[in-house]
């Protein structure tokens, strides 16, 4: 039995070691893969807060991922075409500055999560899954049928957005930036889980009635968690769009929601670094199985089935063995 804290340290260190080794061996593609894993992990960290800590099985997190992506796409496309986003009643211009884009992505996805969460939290259990899935799909169809920003074809951004003091087009610098964002968010989520808010959230997950009895407003608590969760996933969406320099409705697709959920289950539900372990494993599988066979998703499906049926706890759970405190 290994302490989860050590496993987390090893997972984070491995990400750094792999990318520095890749830099040293001049393998920029490996760095890009690592960046992708980090960004997808960030999306899953967001979902993990709602799903793992809060027990809210949202099957619609692609919505926030997509909104984050489109926040980047829309702002950057206006910046690259030198057209203002809006002139009346006041002028808003596009931007290619990442901090601004991140802020917009976080605020936009938080607002969306507030609306969807307020509606979805009126239900629970299986209804909640279906409703979040349906709202996610609504945005997918909206993105397809709204022609202003590329519609079904998506939107290409030719140059990666800028971050003060960095050259984001250099793979290792972009990796470092994404990794730093992930670490900051992980730290915040860790602190949040330890705070009265996090404890109350887990308490409500374990026993809703008891939480209500001690005077916790469970619905409001969950809504706040859902909004934070959506905002984190939205931030990941903005980074993911910047990684690919492309956004399309696929980001809104329900397979994206499923994937984000897969990262969590592969890594370990409600484990701090579970999403990172899961996303990395997914990227490795995608890369190697995808090289072996065009139909690699069959194997992915079988592995996922195995993990769900027989190996609950995922990678981190399997290594740490100890049940999560609130499990």
């Amino acid at each position: 039995m290994i302490r989860e804290r050590y496993i987390n340290a090893v997972i984070l260190a491995l990400m750094v070691i792999i990318s520095i080794a890749a830099l040293w061996m001049d393998e920029p593609f490996t760095i890009t893969l690592a960046t992708k894993a980090v960004i997808l992990a960030l999306a899953a960290v967001g979902l993990n807060l709602a799903l793992g800590q809060g027990g809210l099985v949202s099957f619609g997190h692609a919505a926030y991922f997509g909104v984050g992506g489109y926040a980047m796409g829309i702002l950057a496309s206006h910046a690259q075409n030198y057209t203002p986003l809006m002139e009346v009643p006041f002028l808003i211009e596009g931007t290619n500055q990442m901090p601004v884009i991140w802020l917009v992505a976080v605020v936009a996805s938080a607002l969306l999560a507030l609306v969807i969460g307020a509606l979805s939290l009126r239900t629970s259990g299986v209804y909640f899954i279906m409703v979040t899935l349906a709202f996610g799909q609504m945005l997918y169809y909206f993105a397809i049928s709204w022609p202003a920003y590329g519609g079904e074809d998506g939107l290409s951004i030719y140059v990666r957005n800028e971050f003060p003091g960095l050259n984001t087009l250099v793979p290792i610098q972009f990796f470092g930036l994404c990794f730093a964002v992930l670490c900051v968010v992980l730290f915040m989520v860790h602190r949040l889980n330890q705070s009265p808010f996090g404890l109350a959230l887990m308490g409500a997950h374990q026993n809703e009635e008891r939480a209500r009895t001690v005077g916790i407003n469970v619905t409001r608590l969950r809504l706040v968690a859902f909004v934070i969760s959506g905002a984190i996933t939205g931030l990941a969406g903005a980074l993911f769009a910047d990684l690919n320099r492309f956004v399309s409705p696929v980001m809104f697709d329900w397979h994206t929601s499923g994937q984000i959920m897969i990262f969590i289950i592969l890594g370990g539900v409600a484990r701090l670094c579970g999403p990172l372990a899961g996303a990395s494993l997914y990227i490795i599988l995608e890369h190697y199985l995808g090289g072996l066979s065009e139909y690699w998703q069959i194997y992915l499906g079988l592995i996922l089935l195995f993990v769900v049926l027989f190996a609950k706890g995922g990678i981190v759970g399997g290594l740490a063995r100890k049940e999560v405190r609130h499990g």
């Binding site: 959920m261 897969i262 998703q297 992915l300 499906g301 079988l302 996922l304 089935l305 769900v308 049926l309």
Partner: peptide
């Protein structure tokens, strides 16, 4: 998750 895995397969 299990039925999603079935879809993939």
């Amino acid at each position: 998750l299990a039925t999603f895995a079935l879809i993939l397969v």
